[in-house]
């Protein structure tokens, strides 16, 4: 049987799925990137290989997420696409009439508006990571609780504390202040969930027409506290899919299928020696950082140079 592999390498977590010709999930996996996308992808591949039957042949690979180019090059992917398109395609495969996708991940958050199955508008957070998953996990650490328990604790609160939402730095000092003033812990945690939701709506969702059906995705969607905050703020029902965290990976697998390029994928690549190195081009004062990807000491690809001077250097070194 033919199957397609989709991998979504985010800043915090790495997701992999294998789908069949009808977009059904055969196997999936989800683990932390831990700052090392290559090792994470190797683990994903190992995990997926154990989960599928021997007779399944992977004939196409798609990658997405912030390390899509690096991993795509290593795996010889047939489709390397940005997260926005991948998420839209992935979500549409399950919810044909979706109008709004809210997505909050580890480093970025985005909103995708669709009409009739076509992306009509999107926005991504600008340079700052305020109101994303990394903010919540660092605050969880400060409060000494697990991120996984965050949502449950938040739901026990009856009166969420008001916490400044505009900027992470302000939110943090506001939080410390309120802890010292003696607010209840669960109220503060619920307040944090509200601050993430309202920060998102004020920054990313600014000026956008948010209509139902709304689907909430990304790592933060697993936090029921934030989901409830969104429902209260938008007065709409929010759908969180059990596979919401996999939508990017599913989308990239579908995109790989759509390219119609078939190239059999070998899981043995997880045992190959994959290396990356960065060199600084000394051709001019710009000092472009050139990334070189090597597989078993052979150069697969190199990028990062702004002019031709750098490209020659990458090939000969």
């Amino acid at each position: 049987m033919e199957a397609y592999l989709g991998i979504d390498i985010g800043s915090i977590s790495t997701k992999g799925v294998i789908i069949d010709n009808d977009n059904n999930i055969i196997a999936s996996t989800y683990l932390w990137t831990e700052g090392n996308p290559i090792t994470a992808v190797k683990k994903v591949l190992k995990d997926l290989e154990n989960k599928i039957d021997k007779n399944i042949k992977v004939v196409g690979v798609g990658t997405t997420g912030s390390a899509r180019k690096l991993i795509g090059t290593m795996l010889g992917a047939t489709s390397i696409k940005n997260e926005i398109t991948a998420h839209a395609i992935g979500t549409l495969s399950k919810y044909k009439d979706v109008k709004t996708i809210l997505e909050i991940g580890g480093q970025d958050s985005k909103i995708i508006l669709l009409d009739n199955g076509i992306v009509t508008d999107y926005a991504m957070n600008t340079l700052c990571a305020a109101g994303t998953g990394s903010f919540l996990s660092s605050q969880a650490k400060r409060l000494g609780i697990k991120v996984e328990d965050f949502g449950k604790i938040a739901l026990t609160s009856k009166k969420p504390t008001n916490i400044a939402a505009r900027c992470t730095v302000f939110a943090e000092s506001d939080l410390v202040h309120k802890i010292q003033m003696g607010y209840n812990r669960n109220d503060i945690i619920a307040g944090l969930c509200y601050s993430v939701a309202s920060n998102y709506l004020n920054n990313v969702g600014k000026g956008k027409k948010i209509e139902g059906p709304i689907i909430f995705q990304g790592g933060v969607s697993k936090n029921i506290g934030v989901k409830k905050a969104f429902e209260d703020l938008l007065h709409e029902k929010i759908i969180v899919d059990e596979n919401g965290h996999l939508m990017g990976a599913i989308g990239s697998a579908i995109l790989a299928k759509k390219t119609n390029k078939k190239k059999e994928f070998d899981f043995k690549i997880k045992d190959a020696k994959l290396e990356t190195s960065g060199i600084e081009c000394k051709g001019c004062p710009n000092h472009c950082e050139i990334i070189i990807v090597k597989k078993d000491n052979k150069i697969l690809d190199a990028w990062g140079n702004r002019c031709d001077k750098g490209s020659i250097k990458a090939k000969t070194s």
Binding site: S66, K81, N82, E83, I84, T85, I118, V119, T120, D121, Y122, M124, T126, L127
Partner: peptide, 25 residues
């Protein structure tokens, strides 16, 4: 919005998604 940093990946993602949007439309 452009500032003094020179990382290009974020720009690539946004432009690529914009391109997909326009193309599909």
């Amino acid at each position: 919005s452009f500032d003094e940093q020179t990382g290009i990946e974020g720009l690539n993602t946004r432009i690529e998604a914009f391109y997909d949007l326009l193309k599909l439309k």
